[in-house]
Amino acid sequence: MTPVEQLVLLAVASFLAGVAGSYLGVGGGIFLVPFMTLVLGVDLQVAIATSLIGVIATSSGAASIYVRDRLANLRLGMFLEIATTAGAIGGAVLAVHLDPRVLFFTFAVVVAYTAVFMSRRRETAKDRAYRAGPEARLSERLALSSIYFDHEDEGVYRYRVDRPMAGFVVSGFAGWLSGLLGIGGGFVKVPAINVIMGVPMKPAIATSNLMIGVTAAASAFIYYSRGFVSPTFAAMVVVGVFTGTNLGTRLLLRAKAERIRFAFAAFLAILAVLMGLRAFDVGVSL
């Protein structure tokens, strides 16, 4: 492959990662890291560092739209960012002595379970709306519950944030992964916000997108100063992703929650298979 072909391929892949990332509420690192190492033959650490830059671009590009349209929950995002940034620093600093195969196996199981759960649960207008009953103390204190306007049925929905502490702990774990693997960790955050905290799919994705950039920034500083960021690759990734998020956000705003949920479940299912293979040392890099 000539260098120019390599760069063009990377820009195209980043475009797709940007579309998928902003539509699914993930940073896209989960696509970019394997693509760069497997297809382009880039060093793993360079791939991780460069993908972190891409993750920040996806997040900032997508979040600017979601924040403008009041889809992202700023207060909830900020609350969970305490956990994700602390986790990210932990993941980047502390070397954890854990057999990666155990990690991947655990992941495959959790992700597969989430995929099944998400594909089976329905989100109708009734599910989206505020549910009666007392609110969790912390949610009330920080006023985490919010409202959003859904383009799908032109409705304004008020929703409640349940189990804030459980979501907080899981987000910390997502942050830890981000520091460790150089990904945004959206595949953990979106289910945490949607399934555990009971936030409807669209605000969950928008909030996850907002948080990912902040989390990735925490690890990106450390990777940048170690000299792992390849500027040329990063440039291609940023330009590709930037174009991609412009399309992805537009798709999400109009999409049916049901369809997004299905797409996300399919994404998790594929991820579970890849991670399962990885756990048994079948050569798929992730």
Binding site: I56, S60, A63, A234
Partner: peptide, 14 residues
């Protein structure tokens, strides 16, 4: 500089 500006963007938003 472009890359550093991008990394600082989420920090600025916080």
């Amino acid at each position: 500089l472009g890359i550093v500006v991008l990394v600082l963007t989420p920090v600025t938003s916080v």
